[in-house]
Design a protein around this nucleic acid. Structure first.
Lengths: 214, 214, 214, 214
DNA sequence: CGTTAAGCGAGACGGTACGTCGTGTCTTTGT
DNA sequence: ACAAAGACACGACGTACCGTCTCGCTTAACG
């Protein structure tokens, strides 16, 4: 039907400087559509999401959506991308302080409860649709970066051994929160953060004193 | 809406001892339908799954499916439930040994790769559909039981403090595997199990020696 | 699928004198089923008629119906047949007297209003289903016989010319009642019968006095 | 249920002059659907009629049918309405001439054989469904109008007595044709028309000469 | 400053799947 | 064996959504 590059993201399209003839697109609609999409995904899930509902909630026509994204999946993909906000990397002087700052950071565009509903839909879609999978991987990678930097700085400070498996430590610290958010709905407040840090940091410290026997 | 006992699983129904009048349901169909469902989910994914296709592959009528499950989601849910096999609770004499036995247990009916695709679909559906959510909770609860018993036995043995937050410890041990399976696709082999146990058990041991200062 | 004679009516079956083994059929059910069928046809029409509803109204199982009739059409056919009652052929000594006696005869099993609803269903079905059509033709033929005998006797008496088109005369006398019963819902009382006989008999009489110029 | 204007016929809808927004309906589809409906009703009867078959034969989607008519019955009703063509009222100068002209008029859209199959279905449906019944009554009323005007003109001319029961005379002339068309499949050609007029007109003439003794 | 190309809301369109219901058959248990 | 109950394969029902396609506007940029 059409050549490659048919489907470009909004950011890419904005780069396009050659002026079109005719009425220009209303850029405000893009955000309205994406917001409506996320809102509805949180409410009814990806399976229950209908383009008609998105169009109605965003106050636009269905064709206006399909003019911008050529499938429901492409729309979802772009919508999920907007959930990502770059969080600052804190530097409190200690690993523990940095960690608490990271966990305390509110770096999500949507309310936490909404994210708890949206994120599993994204994970599920990523397992089935390769395109969504790619976007998902980039999303996760970017989200993990700040904590990785914090951990590397802790190594530089000497708080952690240089031989440590950084990815495992990060998963050990992060996974319980994902687990409780998405799988068991357990508590994830600051008390839990403190207990978690107690155990893991104590464990790492204890292991650094004994000869590596792994 | 979710009337009590409205939707009972097959195992529950078999318990029903009061004999029904009329032709009994062909129990063989239950398995045929569930197998066809899992087969098709693996082939075409959740989105591409149609009840008609399940009926055709299982060699039954569509009504026969809806007589047993009142929605496609309920069917998927039960299909997923068949993935669960009750794992024995090991008793090797030590917490570490029990843990390694638990993680080594191959208690899934489906290949791991298939489960990695199916499980996120279940989680996503659970966030959106209350009925699925209930079954999901029961599913998770049952899966968590063996490890909880192992941990409680460790307390009895004196390997863990009686004041410990058992749920948190369990999440700490389990979450990284869920995380790597469903979120980051990281390794989950026995080496990782060993490292994980090293850190967490060392941390718990270290904390038990110091007065609680949290 | 099966040989001829597969479908025998109840009346035929009753002739069967060889005693069956096992529990004999409850003959009372036949009537209950046929009555329920006619009742429902009058209420919801042939299109809205369901065998389940007949079974429920008759207080029998669906299989009990299919054991006696092998299709919904066969059941309807037999039900309609029970509407027919052989009416005596009156002999009052004059054509007019015989006619008035015929029209006055209440020879229908069901109330007239019910018949007005049932009969059109039968006609409609006869146009579409050849089997129903055959039964319908026999039904009509039998119903027409008494009046035909009355008319022939009138010819013998010399009240009507022997060259007359008997079928046309009969249609001329009968049709208006069918028309008003099934098509226009007009009156069909004894006054109308008298007026009708006045016109038609006077017309036939007048034509018999003039040389046939048709 | 039968809300006013809820279900308006096509002719009514065309009157609506306020321009709709959105893509207008393809008017050609209306006729294609109605034609397909009549065709199929004639072939398989009202009971065997399926909306899918209509959609397929008309070359449209099922939703396109349900967008116009909210049930299979409503569709049938409108389809039957299209069978009606307003016939001109002839004026040949004599009652007999007018009558022969009326009976000779080919004012039906469909072939006679098709109508003979369709009409009984309509009658049957009218007995059961009040909505269909109303349309049916209007249909019949409109069809009867031309002959009524012819008869009234005959009264003005003095060919018929002013005291005559007009409805009865009309039924007497019309009913035999309905009867033979729908009930007994007898002949309805011009010879029959002549014989019928001979008898009835002679009868009316004879009665007008004698004092009313009914 | 009018032409013109595109955007826009609305909604019709052919398809496809949904979940329900009825048919005619089959299979149990109860009598 | 018959009867009531109800499971079964099949297929039509009427609804909903997809992605596409007109409609009759509106809105800039170009000529």
């Amino acid at each position: 039907m059409a050549g490659a590059g048919e489907m470009m993201s909004n950011t890419e399209r904005e780069m396009n400087t050659d002026r079109h003839r005719g009425r220009p697109r209303n850029e405000a609609h893009d955000e309205a559509i994406l917001d409506a999409t996320l809102e509805l995904v949180a409410q009814v899930g990806i399976a229950g999401l209908t383009v008609d509902a998105v169009a109605h909630l965003a106050g636009v026509g269905k064709a206006t959506i399909y003019r911008r994204w050529n499938s429901k999946e492409a729309l979802l993909l772009d919508a999920w991308n907007t959930c990502l906000t770059i969080s600052d990397v804190p530097d409190t002087g200690s690993l523990r302080g940095d960690m608490e700052a990271l966990f305390a950071a509110k770096d999500l565009k949507m309310p936490a409860e909404t994210m708890k509903r949206i994120f599993p839909q994204l994970i599920a879609a990523a397992k089935v649709n390769p395109d969504v999978g790619d976007t998902y991987k980039a999303f996760v990678e970017q989200r993990r970066l700040p904590m990785r930097m914090v951990l590397e700085r802790a190594i530089d400070r000497g708080e952690l051994q240089r031989t440590i498996d950084l990815a495992l430590v990060q998963d050990l610290l992060v996974a319980p929160f994902f687990y409780r958010s998405f799988i068991s709905d357990g508590p994830t407040d600051s008390t839990v953060v403190a207990q978690l840090l107690d155990i893991v940091l104590a464990g790492l410290d204890a292991l650094s004193r004994t000869p590596a026997n792994t």
